[in-house]
Amino acid sequence: MEMHTVKPREEAMEQIMAFISREGLSAGDRLPTERQMCQMWDLSRGTVRSALSRLEKMGVLQIRKGSGIYCCGSRFQRNLQGLSSYSGEARYQGKKLANVLIGFSGIESDKKLSRIFSATLGTPLWKLERIRNLDGVPVQIDTSYCSAERFPELDRFDFVKDSLYRVFEEEYHAIPTRGEETISVIKALDEAPLLMLQSGTPVFRIESTTFDQDGIILEYNYSVVRPDHVVLSSEMKIIVQQDEEE
């Protein structure tokens, strides 16, 4: 079989990424200099530079002028199918989560929310807005809506510390059971400053609806997520490939 050599830039990228995982480098760890990399892998300066700039765009490393090349470490993985709480996932991945409350009030449903909750216009809802900080960086703006009739006095809980799902489950016996989540990409505009991003930076928008054990809607959530700090993950399982029979 005829074997091809890989394009120099591809090879340089693979070498650098393999180096990071082999050496077990994590966030803030320093990589060899450009010159050292050229020698280590017998690559030209231009090739290494081009590979580094691509890897910087991919969020693998950061080039600080006059200082060196630093590893960005692994991003927070948000499992899309989990139904696990943010705090639980953060703890599991060794990241420190802090919530900042930016708004918690009773509102009346508008046309869109009424449709989502299958309720008439003006139905009382709770609206809870939080910023999620991971290791000190604001990574997500989270807006939750839930029924005020079903969850009376929800505002007696402190959602800076508490998880909404814990309160649903343990205080109101409403168990988040299944849901649906839609992911798209938008440009951050009014939400940019809260996430410390420049206006116009692309971000994930995640809209999700969660139902309880009786199939009644528990929560509608609207989130804007910084893609440079969070990676979304999902596990796909099969399914019979009936279409392949044709």
């Binding site: 969020g59 991003r75 993985q77 992911i183 990409v185 692309p202 994930f204 893609p227 990676v231 979304l232 993950s233 999902s234 596990e235 796909m236 399982k237 099969i238 490939q241």
Partner: peptide, 11 residues
């Protein structure tokens, strides 16, 4: 038969 894919979504 592909039975499992673990995938990540990024920008």
């Amino acid at each position: 038969t592909v039975t499992r894919v673990h995938q990540f979504l990024e920008l």
